[in-house]
Simulated assay, not measured.
Amino acid sequence: MPLGEQPAYLRVAADLRRKIVSGELPPHARLPSQARIRRLYGVSDTVALEARKVLMAEGLVEGRSGSGTYVRARPEPHRLVRTGYRGLGDVTPFRQEQADESVDGSWDSRSAQERAGADVAARLQLAAGEPVMRTRYVFRSAGEPVLLSTSWEPLALTGRTPVLLPEEGPLAGRGVVERMAAIDVVVDNVVEEVGTRPGLAEEAQALGAVPGQPVLCIQRTFYASGRAVETADVIVPADRYRVSYHLPVR
């Protein structure tokens, strides 16, 4: 193959992608079969199969068991607004993680005690194996799952206090800052790191997405005088959201 020339499967995938983006192959249209791709482009079965795999990995098409491969509907990306916490009584971080506050958002949660793994322990400045409270959330907008979040809090800090369970008790759902203030812990800053990775199978199932489709992972940690008091992973489908930061200039 001459230097700079694309492999055949990428050339086929590029032409099919062009047809999808232009609307020539609209959402829910059936992608040409492997045999038809082979005839249309004069390529082997292997090349046709690899081209389809590329489009599936990009989230442009999806396979339906016993039916074929179809063009996926491409949702209009929403803004996921991230702003600084402005004080007690403000919206909770969980409400902030709804893409649009005018939308009727809801969530399910489940908390359980566990031993901190190496990654979570490092983020919370703990020794591996120390007890933490893990809470898993599924956030919904208009009844549809839109994002996932898993948070961890050190039981050395919250154990035997009214805020042991983030979604139960007198401050249920009030957010990290207000809950910590109730036990005389003053949260003074938060750090967020944003990265991308392929979505895990269980994440895709929860979000109604395609396994392996890219997701945004927002790794968030709250601090009080340099001490980490909560850390969380927020998982967002990359094709549905654009993260928008609104930060004050001091």
Rank of each mutant, 00 (worst) to 15 (best):
S225V: 13
P154V: 09
G63Q: 05
D45C: 09
H78G: 13
V243K: 10
L171Y: 03
M180K: 09
Q96C: 12
Q219A: 03
P214F: 10
E114V: 00
T135R: 03
V249L: 15
R140D: 06
E76C: 11
E144G: 00
S225M: 12
V43E: 08
V190Y: 06
P7I: 03
P170S: 07
L124C: 00
P248I: 06
T161V: 05
G59D: 01
I20S: 08
E5H: 05
Q113F: 12
F139Q: 05
R179V: 07
D188S: 03
K19P: 07
L147K: 02
V177R: 04
F139G: 06
A206I: 10
A232F: 00
V190M: 13
Q96S: 13
L216M: 05
L3N: 12
V163N: 04
M180E: 04
R72D: 07
V47A: 00
S22I: 02
F94T: 13
P166C: 02
E50V: 02
G4D: 15
R160H: 15
L49N: 09
V177I: 11
L126N: 01
G63W: 04
E178Q: 08
S111M: 04
Q125F: 10
G117Y: 04
H28E: 15
L10P: 01
P77I: 05
D119V: 13
A156H: 09
S141Y: 15
L200I: 03
E153P: 04
R39M: 10
V43H: 01
V120P: 08
P93I: 04
E130I: 02
Q213H: 12
P162Y: 11
G59S: 10
P162R: 09
R30I: 02
A201C: 04
V61S: 01
A156G: 15
V71H: 00
H28M: 14
V54G: 00
G175V: 00
H78L: 15
T46Q: 14
Q213K: 07
D100K: 12
V229Y: 08
V191W: 08
L16F: 09
K19G: 02
R18S: 11
V163I: 13
V47S: 03
P93L: 10
V176M: 08
R110I: 11
A73K: 00
I37K: 09
T46K: 14
A73Y: 09
Q113V: 12
V146Y: 08
S141T: 14
G226W: 01
S22G: 02
V243F: 00
D104W: 14
G195M: 12
G66E: 07
V229R: 02
R11C: 06
G68T: 02
V249T: 15
S106R: 11
T161S: 11
V71A: 03
A121M: 03
V185F: 07
R79E: 15
L88Y: 01
M1R: 15
V234L: 14
Q96L: 07
A118K: 15
P162N: 06
E192I: 10
G105Y: 11
S109K: 07
F94D: 14
S44G: 01
V191K: 04
S65D: 14
A29V: 02
G175L: 03
T161F: 12
R52T: 12
D15L: 11
E62Q: 13
Q113W: 11
A204L: 11
A128N: 02
A121I: 07
V132G: 08
V12A: 04
A201I: 03
V234Y: 06
D100I: 09
L126A: 07
T83R: 12
R11K: 12
D100L: 13
P162C: 10
V120T: 03
R74D: 12
